[in-house]
Amino acid sequence: MSKKILVVDDDSDVRSFVVTVLEENQYIPLVAQDGVEGLEMIEKEQPDLIILDVLMPRGSGIRLYRKMKTDDNLKKIPIIMFTGIALRSFLKSQKVLDEFKGGEVPKPDIYLEKPVEPEELVAAIKKKLG
């Protein structure tokens, strides 16, 4: 059975690009425009993988990532970070939150900096889903 992959990104250009890539590779695409909508979709649809942007209005990827990694039901779902901001900045934001909230959230396994070629994205997905 085809795997469900959720794209959370506020940029419609990015969404249509990723959706097209997913369709071309026989995955079932799901979309959300921001962190809040993203979490709703995750709970409702239980996707097999999430492609997550960082800077979004209403519940940024920084927060959604943290929520996923600290929730026992959700932490198993693999995440591909897919963003325009540098990994260094993202890790720094998580480190600040680690210190602020206590505990430590694992680093993302795969961090892709936009723009990426479709092949790169597909390779990353395959690596996670086998």
């Binding site: 940029d11 990015v14 325009g84 936009k114 479709p118």
Partner: peptide
């Protein structure tokens, strides 16, 4: 550079979708 990069992301993504 950040802004231009975002434009580039849009253009590349768009052209891929057009290709498909």
């Amino acid at each position: 550079a950040h802004y231009v990069k975002n434009i580039l992301i849009g253009l590349k993504g768009g052209s891929y979708v057009v290709d498909v």
